[in-house]
Amino acid sequence: MSEERVQRILLYCGVTGAVLFCLAPFGYMVLTGLSLRPDFLRPEIPLTLTALNFGTVLTDPSLHFLAYLRNSLVVSAVSATVAVLVASLAAYALTRLEAPGKLLILFFILGVSLFPQVSLVSWLYKFMATLGWINTLQALVLPYVAWTLPLAVWILYSYFTQIPRDLDRAALVDGCTRLQVLFRVVLPVAAPGVFSTFLLAFIFAFNEFLFALMLTADYTARTVPVGIALFEGRHGELPWGEIMAAATVATLPVVLLTLVYQRRIVQGLTRGAVKG
């Protein structure tokens, strides 16, 4: 057998394996959500499809699932927007303004992500408790911005360095202030990178668990990951169908974003990481 052939076969095995690995648990989740009974894999149990679980999750007010979803979307969108804004100011200063000691600042920003999340929670809790913000959305937005900033700064930094300096200079001569240069020239020109950064920050915030677990108490601020993690049955036995239906709905926004903008996300992720 020729080497080409072996390689071809290996490739198809790899593709199949990768698809199975990535999609099987996801598919199992969706299927369980659609199944009348969660134990449909048992030989004696028939698979009966139903929308019942989805109906319950979306309509039963005592589950508060839609509130969780709303909280998640609001918190993620707001914190991603703020993170991108704050990060672009910093990336602009670091690429354009000859800030003193900029490499040091850059590595400090990266080093911040070395701290384990668990080392922040007690003081974040104290802060938010002092402000009376426990179980509010802003109590999540602020730490999420801080938590996604290092990644955002690094990605934007790498995009901004690729914009020719002459564009800035032209804009300055054309009458822009520094801030106008950033908002009227640099950000629009770097739009794809800015969008990648926003997507990543959004997904990071949407998926965050520990802060949300500590800083929220109920549906007024609780986010989807915590909601699903703490989803317990009302009658002892875990309602797997409902949990999986909720999980399916919860992952829908991020999965859709990922499928539609996969190219942007991959670019942003690898820029932020490999560039350094």
Partner: peptide
């Protein structure tokens, strides 16, 4: 590539829950 991204995009708490079911002793 899009498929590969899905596990990354799903919140760990959610995929944790899915695996909890996957590891269910009886079914």
């Amino acid at each position: 590539r899009a498929c590969v991204l899905i596990p990354w995009a799903v919140p760990a708490a959610v995929s944790g829950r899915v695996f909890e079911l996957i590891y269910n002793y009886s079914y």
